[in-house]
Design a protein around this nucleic acid. Structure first.
Lengths: 216, 216
DNA sequence: CACTTTGGTTAGAAGCTATCACGAACATTA
DNA sequence: TAATGTTCGTGATAGCTTCTAACCAAAGTG
């Protein structure tokens, strides 16, 4: 059990209110999108008047940054939990898809349209690296041909600092990037509704891409 | 030559002003993103006061819808031009990438974060279908095994209304969807800056994905 | 020349973010 | 217990946004 002595009643209240604010923010984002997030609306729905929220967040940007942080953390936790439960690459893919479908706007908060001026804080890129680490480990666990066969593999062999200290062969790095980008391709198009009206089942396209990814 | 008699001076003025408004809108979108598009700022930069723009567009939504329409048209024209110049699937891929890199925010206007309430007008989906038609034709021009090999191919064989009347075999439909989703995967991640700081060249990942797509 | 349509203006309503100054509740210390 | 300091919430205000309404002038039309 964590030591509860260092948390004064005021701190507890503060963190509780912050959590409640984020709760309402998520609800609002899920229904109207991140661009329609209104501090005023959140405040009124919580029974207090506008400027009160500025006691808890420096402004709209800081709130959104915090939500982005939580989204990254949620994604990393989900994949880590799946990997911890013994999931292989296919299992990770399904976990990722379920996580994305559970809240599409949360997915787009991470992978959606970038705001030209915005630069994510360093700790966020660290959390993103954790997600990548889970994928990399799952890729390394799969048998693969060790030969460096393509120009990209040769390039990756000398540009691998994003993989940290892991001594994985270049084809594994390649597989991880393909895994990420292909699943993101299907998922983002599906979540954005680009497949609606086309008449086929996006889940089957996802499975087909995954099968091709893991296949021969 | 089109008959110029049906265009009165007033109509010419009107379309010219509309074009100028869209010009400024694109500039603003490219630098600050679509969410930061301000009718007021456009008006002031054009030397007239705010509400004047409402003579030309019903509101912000209609302007953005018009920009989205232009973006789709630009994409379709680009791909059609490439196909007309004899480009194969690889050529189309490179044309698409160049088009996306030329204006990332234009790409995200089409494929970026969807606004929950928004539904595109019918003519926009028609233009999107034109783009798909170009890709489908290029896919059909490639030699491919005719056997229906996967569950998804079987599914596509009975859910193919999105391909119109084209009598292409299911594997070709499958190839077109993979082409679209995989290239979108790499492109959107690159344009969103998800690869920055990782140290490898996104162009080479794009080439690797393309090669795998066209390969054996 | 008179009349209608069109383009532009200013004024204003309603909404948003964000800052400021003040009062009230709470916590801590003398 | 009393005094002091910190934190929370308020209303007022500035400045921005979209968008409507009322009005005026200019351009085209009978």
């Amino acid at each position: 059990m964590p030591q509860a002595r260092t948390s004064t009643p005021r701190e507890r209240y503060r963190t509780q209110v912050r959590a409640e604010i984020k709760e309402h923010a998520w609800e609002q984002i899920a229904t109207a999108g991140a661009s329609a997030l209104s501090l005023n609306a959140i405040a009124k729905r919580m029974g207090m008047s506008g400027p009160a929220l500025y006691r808890y967040f420096d402004g709209r940007d800081e709130l959104i940054t915090e939500l982005i942080r939580d989204a990254y953390r949620s994604q990393a936790d989900t994949l880590r939990a799946a990997a911890g439960a013994g999931a292989d690459l296919a299992g990770l893919a399904h976990a990722l898809r379920a996580w994305a479908l559970a809240d599409p706007q949360r997915y787009f908060l991470i992978f959606g349209t970038p705001v030209p001026g915005y630069h994510a804080p360093d700790d966020i890129t660290e959390i993103a690296a954790e997600t990548m680490a889970v994928i990399l480990d799952a890729c390394a666990a799969r048998p693969s041909s060790d030969g460096v066969d393509g120009a990209f593999d040769a390039h990756l062999d000398t540009h691998r600092q994003w993989a940290g200290e892991r001594p994985v062969p270049a084809p594994v790095l390649h597989r991880a990037l393909s895994f990420w980008s292909r699943l993101h391709g299907v998922l983002s198009l599906e979540l954005a509704g680009q497949f609606t009206g086309m008449g086929f089942d996006p889940a089957l396209l996802f499975e087909a891409e995954l099968k091709d990814l893991l296949g021969p």
